[in-house]
Design a protein around this nucleic acid. Structure first.
Length: 593
RNA sequence: CGGGGAGUGGCGCAGUUUGGUAGCGCGCUUGCUUUGGGAGCAAGAUGCCGCAGGUUCGAAUCCUGUCUCCCCGACCA
């Protein structure tokens, strides 16, 4: 491709809309343009990157036995009503764009394809003999994100590879899950990305095991925790660790302590010379459950610990046996609104009586009590006395009505010891989630009532897995991981072009002819090459080539008359001056070993 | 949705406080010169100052409403 004919519009200034490096560089390099909030055009260079990534994904998935398909983006509401997700996905905070057709039928724009594919599987896969099947597609997804962000990182329209596997048994699902894990590792490696697989919460999608693939980068939206021996990695939402040792209280009998206005852990520790690990912190949350009940939560944690809300939501879901739609801290205004006024905020103990809720308007009148293991295992503690300006010192769980069951509700933090080996410590990194694999189990096949006939002649719901890769996000994540002050440094495998021939001065006949000849030879050798034949000054072309990040550059310049050119490697800026034939041979053998 | 910021040529911004004929840099067009790291000179083109009302002799500027975008939190590939 001749750059003079390429739709390449580079920007010298950073557009104000872009915050992080990858977003800025993709805009400046003429890769993408914003069309609306979270909506982007992939310009020709970007589309080539996307296609190269997609090609790698296809090769690896095909090799792993998956089959490509293409499912519709327009989904009849009826399908989503069958799985019970229509309401949740379209109402209020729902993430699905939806519309009505001229007949008044309701349709949704696919944010994900479990419903469509599960329903199809039920029609097409009748017998265990047809299983397993793993279907994938590369397609644009639509999600009305609460807040689109960072260019392609969180768009409302984005390209995703999603795959769904169907199995006759859980064991078979686990096999495919492991195959996908391996395929994903190869995909990210081939794309030149350092991606860490981490244990993940399976969240709204549900299911058993789940693993995310995180491209480590400071701009990442997720916090991940890794053991320093490299054997454990988890999203903070899921991560576990060994809590630090608590400082023991000298065991005396329980006594009431006057703590006027000391409503924070900080204040209490400062004025009474306590260590936070000697205190119990009690938090009030309100959870909205699937059946519409509003369940107040009384959460107890050792005061030096932080609550992990994802773990809390999961625990509440398990304890109540239903989905938690929403969970947030109770504010003073909430108490006013409920007419609940006997709760001494700042002085609550784990044994706060349910009587406090007696006047609640819409809340359930009984706390769901959730106690973190760090709190449940304390022998003696400081805790609120359930009356203003009073705390209890040296309380034991017997004093508080019995030892509660300890749950895991705390955030694991960097610096803490790992569970699998207390000799190792957790370190934290930020990550961009580029892939996620799930063992869904039978959640969707049951919801959609999709079945096959098993060996015994009985119908049975499919075991399912699902596996996603954010293709457009991956492309941007690659830039986030591979750039420098001058621009993008694409990994060669996903670069829009592998090489660019830059003629310093097109006015110079010798340079122009040599450049043209080298370009033609690269093309003949099957190299994806650009030829910068623009009548621009050399500096402009060098800046552009750096910015758009083509991995290899041949500069045909002032030594052209001696048959000498420069071979430049973008990523490390290494320059070799070589006779043009050698440069060409070297480059071709590097790219096509 | 809550909190913060911004809408002025393709991009980056000034001008708004204190109303008085819309500016700068980059980019774009033409010509001459220059030609290895975003050139110089000259001449140009490009604005419903987000939109709608209002105040005023006069509004980018003041008032009211509205829309859009960006950043921080809940969502997720």
């Amino acid at each position: 491709m001749r750059v003079s004919r390429l739709l390449l519009v580079t920007l010298r200034d950073v557009p104000a809309e872009a915050e992080i490096a990858s977003h800025q560089l993709l805009l400046r390099g003429g890769y993408i343009r914003r069309v609306g909030s979270g909506i982007y055009a992939y310009l020709p260079l970007m589309w080539r990157v996307i296609q190269r990534i997609t090609a790698i994904v296809r090769e690896e998935l095909n090799a792993a036995g998956a089959q490509e398909t293409l499912l519709p983006q327009l989904h009849p509401a009826e399908l989503w009503q069958r799985s019970g997700r229509w309401q949740g996905y379209t109402a209020g905070e729902g993430i699905m764009f939806h519309l009505e057709d001229r007949q008044g039928r309701e349709l949704g724009l696919g944010p994900t394809h479990e419903e469509v594919v599960t329903s199809l599987a039920g029609d097409l896969l009748q017998s265990y003999k047809q299983l397993p099947v793993n279907l994938y597609q590369v397609q644009t997804k639509f999600r009305d994100e609460i807040r689109p962000r960072f260019g392609l990182m969180r768009g409302r329209e984005f390209i995703m590879k999603d795959a769904y596997s169907f199995h006759a048994s859980e064991a078979d699902l686990q096999n495919t899950y492991l195959d996908m894990d391996q395929a994903y590792r190869r995909i990210f490696e081939r794309c030149g990305l350092a991606a860490v697989p981490v244990d993940a919460d399976s969240g709204a999608i549900g299911g058993a095991a789940s693993q995310e693939f995180m491209v480590t980068a400071d701009a990442g939206e997720d916090l991940i925790l890794l053991s320093d021996d490299g054997t454990y990695a988890a999203n903070q939402e899921k991560a576990v660790s060994v809590p630090s040792q608590a400082v023991q209280l000298d065991g005396a009998a329980m006594e009431l302590i006057s703590t006027p206005d000391e409503t924070s852990i900080d204040a209490l520790c400062r004025s009474n010379n306590w260590h936070p690990s000697q205190l119990i912190k009690v938090l009030l949350f309100i959870a909205r459950l699937d059946d519409g009940t509003e369940q107040p939560l009384l959460i107890s944690l050792r005061a030096d610990q932080e609550l992990n809300e994802v773990k809390l939501i999961n625990a509440v879901g398990r304890l109540k046996g239903q989905e938690v739609l929403d969970c947030r801290p109770i504010q003073a205004e909430d108490l006013d609104r409920q007419g609940v006024n006997s709760i001494p905020l700042g002085f609550i103990g784990p044994d706060l009586d349910d009587d406090a809720l007696r006047s609640a308007r819409s809340w359930t009148k009984q706390f769901l009590r959730c106690t973190d293991k760090t709190a449940a295992t304390m022998e003696r503690m400081v805790c609120g006395a359930n009356q203003p300006d009073q705390h209890r010192l040296n309380a034991t769980w017997d004093d508080l009505g019995g030892t509660p069951k300890g749950l895991d509700l705390r955030k694991a933090r960097a610096g803490e010891a790992c569970v699998h080996n207390p000799e190792t410590q957790l370190i934290e990194k930020r990550g961009i989630e580029v892939g996620h694999i799930f063992q869904l189990g039978r959640k969707y096949s049951e919801a959609m009532d999709s079945r096959f006939t098993n060996e015994a002649g009985k119908t049975e719901h499919f075991w399912m897995g699902c596996y996603g890769i954010g293709i457009s996000r991956l492309a941007q994540a690659a830039v986030e991981q591979h750039h420098d002050d001058a621009g993008i440094c694409w990994p060669t495998t996903i670069a829009p072009y592998e090489a660019i021939v830059v003629v310093a001065n097109m006015q110079d006949q010798t340079q122009a002819e040599l450049g043209e000849s080298l370009y033609n030879q690269l093309i003949a050798a099957g190299v994806d090459a650009l030829f910068d034949d623009r009548k621009e000054r050399a500096g402009v072309k060098f800046k552009d080539a750096d910015l758009i990040g083509i991995p290899w550059r041949i500069v045909v310049g002032r030594d052209a008359s001696d048959g000498v050119v420069e071979l430049v490697e973008r990523a490390n800026r290494g320059v070799q001056k070589l006779p043009h034939a050698d440069a060409l041979k070297g480059l071709i053998s590097t790219l096509r070993p």
